[in-house]
Design a protein around this nucleic acid. Structure first.
Lengths: 348, 348
DNA sequence: ATGAAAGCGCTAACAA
DNA sequence: TTGTTAGCGCTTTCAT
């Protein structure tokens, strides 16, 4: 068995309170401080955070529940959040729920039993049922990436509608008119918003589009491959494709590759996330890039604020961050159009 | 405050032992079982794992310390390990130490204070000093990917020498003779072994090579970019390059892209890991693929065995798994050679 | 099958 | 500044 504070007390002849005081930044006489440190050394003492957690009713641990760890967007955010939380003395327990709502619910319950002080969640269950019980305990939740209507917690989101609109506007500015989209799952808010941006841009430019240009993907690599194949098959006249997350972007590139389609000569492409992958594509891919580091900072910041403020429930905050377009060479200017020509909406 | 077992006892009129027995699979009279379940429901009771952990001196939590979460190889392994461990009732606390030995040491100490039952570690500190104290407590450690000489624990490794040899043999079989390598950091065992396989293959084929063909990378994307640029600049006659981890492979592809070098016409390439990325490259990249799922299964399995066996220290195991080559179209057959022609070692 | 009671290692209130 | 003590929520003897 590991040494306890009692052992240190015995060895130094001091009382428990003194030892505890030593570990919690209290005032301890220099002489005793030394004695304690010697004892720690000799007994290989290490604070037992489990006991401390039981007593203080705070584990200084934050739970993180995400759909998929093996996903660059999630991994980047977690890396950064973990860093920040650790620097503030908080541990992180990450639960990957494999995009499965049942597992997600289990994960939250599991973390609740572990008495984490708060949960940061990129939700799979868009109703938020999995969080209800946890929220009742009064512990804070911060949602990232996807919103849940009416959830009693802070959220950190991205302006997905604008992200999609920007991408589409770029296509239009280069003369494209028949533009496909590989969207995400219907129930996920980011997918809804990106699709809405797609539609909005068509409207704004006064250009009709047909339903066959919209392909519902599932945010996976294989979904991207299939999405691209479907779009190409059903729309021989399509000149551009917008892919709405990283995994599907990779899938679309695989599909283009395997079908032998030249980018951008035969098809223009705008993808999503992961600048390094975009650089590795030939020609370099134009992408919409999400501010993962900022998302992480905001989320960790909001969580810390709730945790440090001792539970006085301030109004819930929803942050909305902006994406940017990183230009590559995967968008071609359609014949007869000058690059960057303003669209003809107001002239037509 | 959350409800406790005491509250349930009060509400049902039963004793604490009965409630505890209920939660731990003991025998409880049907009538009482019902009463307890009602009380749980009404009080929103949830077991407090912190208190349980203090009492049982076991947290059913495994710590995982890795150099970088934001790394596909690590992420894949962790995803799978977490899944397995969870299915056996164990939680996972992941610590990303940012390839920093000081942070790695801190992470282990942190996990130790949290009283994790065991640690799975992909070590940065090749001496293993960071684990010494933890090992003294008698709790199990499983090392993955990189070995530490004389460490008192199980290890799950990959046969890196053979992996490199296989890749090089493929180059030789296609008539390449001037083959560069982008290696990893000197102190990391996987890098040493892969370089050793590189050298061995040259020897085996009785072909000399010059030092300028060996480039020391750092296992990062940017390192791969620089590595490729250096090799190309210093070796105009080089016909092939072997890149020895995934991040550097991506970097090398970026470098090739940005220098406008055609693969495989101007340069043949074999990369490492991540089949999906390989498929996304044009032409499809030939890669050495590591068995991430198996690594995870072995590591989790070894850990569970130690944990369930109640600490009777069986002999330490070192598993060594095999890689495989996934063929793409990035290796060209040098003029004058039939594809797959056996090398001329024994004929010359 | 159930109840009473001790104690895991720590913190914090109180007393000295 | 330091010591004494109670108790956090649970498991686990030991009785009954």
């Amino acid at each position: 068995m590991a040494a306890t504070m009692k052992d240190i007390a015995r060895r130094t002849g001091l009382g428990l309170a003194t030892i505890s005081s030593y570990f919690n930044g209290g005032n301890v006489r220099e002489k005793n401080r030394k004695k304690i440190e010697e004892a720690i050394e000799e007994l290989h003492y290490e604070v037992n955070e489990v006991a401390r957690g039981l007593k203080t009713n705070a584990t200084r641990t934050v739970g993180v529940v995400i759909p998929e760890l093996n996903n660059v967007f999630c991994a980047e955010i977690i890396t950064e959040m973990e860093d920040i939380l650790r620097n503030h003395g908080y541990a992180t327990i990450v639960c990957d729920c494999r995009t499965n709502p049942a597992l997600e619910q289990e994960a939250v319950e599991f973390l609740s039993r572990k008495r984490v002080d708060g949960i940061i969640n990129m939700p799979v269950d868009t109703e938020g049922g999995h969080l209800r019980k946890f929220l009742k305990t009064g512990r804070p939740v911060v949602l990232i990436d996807r919103k849940i209507q009416g959830a009693a917690c802070d959220s950190v989101l991205v302006d997905n509608e604008k992200a999609a609109e920007d991408a589409m506007d770029l296509f239009f500015a280069n003369g494209h008119r028949t533009i496909g989209i590989i969207g995400g799952p219907e129930e996920i808010s980011t997918a809804q918003e990106r699709l809405s941006g797609y539609r909005k841009s068509f409207e704004k430019h006064g250009i009709p589009f047909r339903e066959s240009l919209i392909c519902r993907g599932d945010y996976t690599i294989q979904g991207g491959v299939r999405g691209l194949e479907t779009l190409v098959k059903n729309n021989p006249d399509m000149t551009a494709v917008f892919v709405t997350n990283y995994e599907m972007t990779m899938g679309a590139v695989i599909g283009l590759n395997e079908l032998g389609i030249q980018v951008p000569d035969q098809l223009s492409v705008i993808g999503f996330d992961n600048l390094q992958f975009a650089r590795a594509c030939s020609p370099k891919l134009t992408i919409v890039s999400q501010p993962t580091v900022e998302i992480a900072r905001e989320a960790a910041g909001l969580m810390l604020k709730r945790l440090e403020s001792g539970g006085d429930t301030g109004a819930y905050v929803t942050e909305k961050l902006n994406t940017e377009i990183i230009a590559g060479r995967s968008v071609r200017c359609v014949a007869g159009w000058e690059p960057g020509t303003p669209d003809r909406k107001h002239q037509a």
